[in-house]
């Protein structure tokens, strides 16, 4: 029994130059917001950008960006709709934003199906918004998208840091490239993650501040790009563009 979707994925991603998975050990650290703002900034800089929400059971990039009433075009496969110059793929086009509970194999089958039929065309960057942890999504991305590189998002919480370290270990064992770490929700009351990363030999990309106003900007990309977080992300994105991650 041969699964033809696996070979198809290789072809579908053949014109994508860089694939970045935005991941974390724990949930609630701001991965989806960082992935969305990263995609917005890259698109604003003129790069051809795609964004896929791989958190199938709890998708949120569409809410962060304000994607509404869009559906992929059916053209020898499916072509993701373009929103703010970003080609966006999300399972919500198909689940109609209803509750979707998936066990491991069902997640993997959804992942293979969507990746096998989605025609991205030429992209400079494809951003993967990952669910948290080292689970089916992480393992499938590593297995089927060999050129993927990871950005790890953490807060300074020892709970978040402990799991981020496990994720880094898992990626290092599998020899998967890590672009670096972003510390999110930084405040004057939190200690720096940077000091704790020396032993991990992982690039520290920068910090984004805790912003109580951020929530009000969800759904409005113009407002989102004016937030303190987005301004700080600009600097981080410049760093991401220059980090060399070796195979």
């Amino acid at each position: 029994m041969l699964d033809p979707r696996i070979k198809a994925i290789e072809h579908r991603l053949s014109q994508v130059n860089n694939i970045i998975a935005v991941s974390s050990g724990k949930g609630g650290v701001g991965k989806s917001v960082i992935a969305s703002i990263l995609a917005l900034i890259l698109a604003k800089k003129g790069y051809k950008v795609g964004l896929i929400d791989l958190d199938f059971t709890s998708p949120s990039t569409h809410l962060i960006l304000g994607v509404k009433e869009l559906f992929p075009e059916e053209k020898e496969g499916i072509v993701p709709p373009t929103f703010e110059n970003i080609k966006i793929m999300s399972i919500i086009y198909f689940s109609k934003d209803k509750t979707l509970s998936l066990r491991g194999q069902d997640f993997s089958d959804s992942f293979l199906e969507i990746l096998a039929i989605t025609k991205w065309g030429k992209l400079d960057y494809l951003i993967l918004d990952m669910p948290p942890g080292i689970n089916d999504a992480t393992l499938d991305v590593i297995r089927y998208i060999r050129k993927v590189k990871f950005i790890i998002v953490t807060t300074s919480s020892i709970l978040s840091l402990a799991t981020a370290k496990k994720l880094i270990d898992a990626l290092n064992i599998l020899k998967i490239g890590i672009i670096g770490i972003i510390e999110n929700m930084k405040s004057e009351h939190t200690h720096s993650v940077k000091d704790k990363l020396d032993k991990l030999e992982t690039e520290f990309l920068g910090e984004t501040s805790f912003d109580p106003e951020l929530e009000k900007c969800f759904g409005n990309t113009q407002m989102l790009l004016k937030t303190k977080m987005a301004v700080e992300m600009e600097e981080i994105v410049n760093k991401i563009l220059n980090v060399k991650v070796y195979e």
Binding site: P4, R5, I6, A8, E10, E74, E76, G77, I78, A116
Partner: peptide
């Protein structure tokens, strides 16, 4: 024509 993408997947694999 989503079937086209499935047909391509078969061709690539075979």
């Amino acid at each position: 024509m989503h079937e086209w993408a499935l047909a391509e997947a078969i061709i690539y694999t075979v």
